[in-house]
């Protein structure tokens, strides 16, 4: 072994020769691209082709893929235009919906985790509230809309309330299950080191239940996004739901398809985002 060689080996990765390390770093990236990104791209391409073929025939009820892109090109390229009223770009439509979801969902998280802890901790609360929860959670989101419109006398708080009431049930139920499943040993550890109620809540209860809580939060965010689109169709104003309804009334089928794609992508991102936060918070012990 000559001295220069040993020196090379002990050098830090950052100081390595750029050309070599870049190629070496690209190798695993290529493998990921081939194994993870390529399969969905192939399937997607095939489906778009099928759509194109099926809807290009004369007399097809729905626009083909190319026709849809042609007709919505303005919407795709200029998502931030604002002509006043409801005539705003797709980005504003989606942001308006996301804003409603943010309010309703945040409220559901706070109240849902709180109620979940209560029900998880107290058998009396469980017996008293659980039947009520089990009945109310089966009420479809839109069925809450008329009653909330009657109560709030305004469309925006009503939509937020619908989000809230839709997202809260899985959060409550998962939180309470998580609290109930805290191993007796963790409680004993807390008793031996004499944590008080507040410390127990922050240091043992929340982290121990976090994997369950986050699976509730993920289901909740998915449901809120489902509910907002439906609710907005009925309440009107700016928002992706009403955009779809409006497009239907104007027979702009291509606009509807574009909106559906956006709704799907945003819903997917919301789910990933909550999963990511959950993973960070629970250090990988949460599923997902």
């Amino acid at each position: 072994m000559n001295p220069t060689q040993t020196f090379d080996r002990t050098r830090l990765p950052g100081t390595e020769d750029k050309g070599v390390s870049l190629l070496a770093r690209l190798e695993p990236l290529k493998a990921v691209l081939l194994s993870r990104v390529l399969p969905p791209l192939i399937i997607l391409g095939a489906l778009v082709m099928l759509w194109e073929v099926l809807c290009s025939r004369p007399g097809a009820a729905l626009p083909s893929a190319s026709q849809m892109v042609r007709e919505t090109w303005e919407l795709i390229t200029d998502p931030f235009y604002d002509n006043g009223g409801n005539d705003v770009g797709m980005a504003w439509q989606i942001l308006a919906s996301l804003e409603r979801v943010a309010y309703g969902y945040s409220l559901a998280v706070v109240v849902g985790v709180g109620l979940g802890v209560l029900v998880g901790q107290s058998t009396w609360a469980l017996r008293g509230l659980d039947p009520l929860f089990q009945v109310l959670r089966t009420v479809p989101p839109l069925a809450w809309l008329p009653i909330s419109l009657a109560g709030f006398q305004d469309s925006n708080p009503s939509a937020i309330f619908v989000i809230f009431i839709t997202a809260i049930w899985p959060i409550i139920i998962n939180t309470s299950v998580g609290i109930r499943n805290i191993p007796e040993d963790y409680r004993n550890v807390a008793r031996v080191i004499r944590l008080n109620g507040f410390e127990y809540f922050w240091k043992i209860m929340l982290p121990a239940a976090a994997p369950y809580i986050f699976s509730g939060l993920r289901i909740g965010v998915g449901l809120s996004w489902l509910a907002i689109v439906a609710a907005e169709m009925l309440i009107g104003g700016v928002g992706i739901g009403f955009f779809i309804w409006d497009a239907w009334n104007s027979s702009l089928i291509s606009d509807i398809i574009l909106a559906l794609i956006y709704v799907g992508i945003v819903g997917f991102l919301l789910d990933r985002m909550v999963a990511w936060v959950g993973n960070r918070v629970t250090r990988g012990t949460a599923a997902g």
């Binding site: 040993d185 963790y186 004993n188 031996v192 080191i193 004499r194 043992i204 629970t282």
Partner: peptide, 28 residues
């Protein structure tokens, strides 16, 4: 009542899985 003057080593270790080794001792 339980207390740190009678510290217990549990059969199944009962470490808190979301805390590091250091933090598990630190909490006590």
């Amino acid at each position: 009542a339980p207390g740190p003057d009678r510290a217990l080593v549990f059969q199944n270790h009962s470490l808190l899985p979301w805390l590091t080794v250091y933090q598990n001792v630190e909490i006590a």
